Amino acid sequence: MSNIFSRTLDRFRGSGSAATTLPPMDGALRPNTRIDEAEALASLEAPDNILSTPDGILLSSRERLLRLTPEGGTDVIWSASSDITCLASDGSGALAVGLDEGRVLIRGGRHDGWEGTQLNGMPIVAPSAAVFTDPDTLLLCLASQDNRMGDWKLDLMTKRASGSVWKLDLAAGTATCLCRGLAFPYGIVAAEENSVIVSESWCHQVLRIGADGRTEVMLAELPGYPGRLVRDVEGEDLWLTLFAPRTQLIEFVLREDEYRQRMIATIEPEYWIAPSLHAPTSYLEPLQGGSLKQLGELKPWAPSRSLGIVLRLDPAGHAKESLHSRANGVRHGVTSCLPSRDGLLMTSKGGDVVVRAKL
């Protein structure tokens, strides 16, 4: 009862969960141009899911699985039947692949040929992230049970929270649900004491999920929508991508149910007042023209629906440093990254490029 009263009071005062205020980007999150200044390694359509394997650095581009070459090009290894939504390597030759059509499969290794479309009778709809803890155990995020990964804007605009996190024992053929009711879990890493760390996009936070299913918020009130997580090549730090920014306008639209429902019913998703992975490209998009630019120059206060941000977190979840592609940049929609001894590799899904920044 107290929760109902609190939410009603928040809506009346515009506070708490009903507030449209946003956390400032200062301190370790201070805006910079490190992503736009980074070295371009390869230009390709919608790069995503970059990871290191015994066969080299692999990444996805729509339905294609690619390998980065030392010369900066890419070789096509495999073409799937739908877009590749997540990748994981066990470090010894096995690769877990999630597909937008609602399927997870294993290529190579001791479980080569394994394929799943259901977990304990529940259909796989949106596999968003995966990580091996050993060759027989796979941790898997399902972002939603209502919408596929390609319909992530619809999932946000309809305010869904049907995501889940699973632990798959590939040898025994069993699946255990670690947590349900999450608002688009999009990144996962294994942690100590059989716990996992998960990014929850629509709640703008990073969670720790214990072996008993209890959740603890590690990092809250992020200024953007968190994506994938990966451990640093040295030490216990984490790297977290923010694939799109939060804005006061989008926060306001999320609280106006009638307007949002009419927008979804009558306008193409590309032109919704919603986060985007790329900089404006059409005159049909919201908030363009005089709202953003004057005499061809971007206004300093212009709201942007797209950005590129990567955060470095310490073991406690505190931000230590960040890399940005700002509103006037083009390397937006950074969905995954890969730390290496030569720098940080990042996939700009909205900018169609893979870059490497010095650290």
Rank of each mutant, 00 (worst) to 15 (best):
204 H>N: 11
231 R>G: 01
160 R>W: 06
177 C>N: 13
151 D>G: 10
252 F>R: 15
225 Y>A: 06
155 D>N: 13
203 C>W: 12
227 G>E: 07
176 T>L: 12
180 R>V: 12
229 L>C: 03
242 L>S: 08
178 L>P: 06
254 L>C: 10
263 M>N: 04
241 T>G: 01
224 G>M: 01
233 V>R: 14
177 C>Q: 14
251 E>G: 05
240 L>S: 04
221 E>C: 08
199 S>M: 11
254 L>R: 13
156 L>G: 03
187 G>C: 01
152 W>V: 03
161 A>D: 05
222 L>H: 10
183 A>T: 01
160 R>Q: 15
162 S>H: 04
230 V>W: 00
217 V>Y: 07
226 P>M: 05
213 G>Q: 06
157 M>L: 14
246 R>L: 11
186 Y>G: 04
175 A>Q: 12
259 Y>K: 10
186 Y>R: 12
216 E>D: 14
162 S>L: 09
245 P>H: 07
173 G>D: 08
164 S>G: 10
265 A>F: 12
227 G>R: 06
244 A>L: 11
206 V>N: 04
185 P>S: 08
211 A>W: 09
193 E>M: 11
232 D>Q: 04
209 I>Q: 02
232 D>R: 01
255 R>H: 15
193 E>V: 13
159 K>E: 13
225 Y>T: 02
191 A>D: 12
156 L>V: 05
259 Y>M: 08
158 T>R: 11
248 Q>A: 14
176 T>M: 13
172 A>Q: 13
237 D>K: 14
228 R>L: 06
181 G>C: 10
248 Q>F: 00
149 M>R: 03
252 F>N: 11
201 S>H: 03
192 E>T: 15
259 Y>R: 11
242 L>Q: 05
177 C>W: 10
218 M>V: 06
236 E>V: 10
226 P>R: 09
209 I>C: 06
218 M>S: 03
243 F>P: 01
236 E>L: 13
254 L>M: 13
192 E>D: 15
260 R>L: 14
230 V>M: 01
233 V>A: 09
190 A>Y: 05
155 D>V: 08
254 L>G: 14
151 D>S: 13
181 G>D: 01
170 L>M: 14
